[in-house]
């Protein structure tokens, strides 16, 4: 199958889905914005009919201002040589309660890895994903750390101590009337 054919086919396919917005960013990059309800159908079509067989990644972006998570499914077609990024937004919910979405594991097997990662880091529960359990943060009981409302630097400052150096040269300067003037934590930009 030729690239052009696939592209033409893709355009026809995309027109079948409701409320879809397609942006061609460059020769090999397509951005698609799609409602959360239509995304699985889109991926199904992409994989089944348009040769986008490789799920490169699922990225999650937290937008607390909009009370939403953005999920981005990056799909690659070996034949069309084109990367399609499907963007969708789901409600965010509070940190105590998980946000929910459906797994696309039945379409793309690699999704399991990314879904588990997003579940762990952002607290988005994917229904019917095979491994919704801890993986990287085995011993972490705090909130999902990649959420914007988790302040990692504050956590580190509360949990760990700064090294307390007091070498001879510093003691000499202190005797002279000088000493530490600006600590690094005072001026983080």
């Amino acid at each position: 199958m030729k690239c052009d054919e696939i592209n033409a086919w893709l355009d026809a396919l995309l027109s079948e889905i409701n409320e879809i917005e397609v942006t061609r960013k460059s020769e090999r990059r397509v951005r698609v914005d799609v409602p959360a309800s239509s995304l699985p159908a889109l991926l199904e079509l992409l994989k089944g009919k348009a040769s986008y067989v490789h799920l490169s990644a699922i990225s999650c972006v937290d937008w607390p201002g909009d009370e939403e998570f953005e999920l981005v499914y990056h799909c690659w077609s070996y034949e069309a040589k084109s990367l399609l990024s499907a963007h969708t937004r789901i409600p965010r919910n509070s940190a105590e309660e998980f946000a929910h979405y459906v797994s696309v594991y039945d379409i793309y097997k690699p999704a399991a890895f990314f879904e588990r990662d997003i579940y762990e880091m952002f607290g988005v529960y994917f229904e019917s994903s095979p491994y919704m359990e801890k993986f990287i943060l085995t011993e972490w009981n705090g909130p999902p750390p990649m959420r914007k409302d988790f302040d990692a630097e504050a956590y580190v400052n509360d949990t760990f101590n700064w090294a307390d150096y007091h070498p001879q040269w510093l003691q000499d300067i202190e005797e002279e009337g000088g000493g530490i003037a600006i600590r690094p934590e005072d001026i983080r930009l």
Partner: peptide, 11 residues
Amino acid sequence: DAGYLHRGFEK
């Protein structure tokens, strides 16, 4: 079982 080298780089 991963996580032994997790340094939170993305964060």
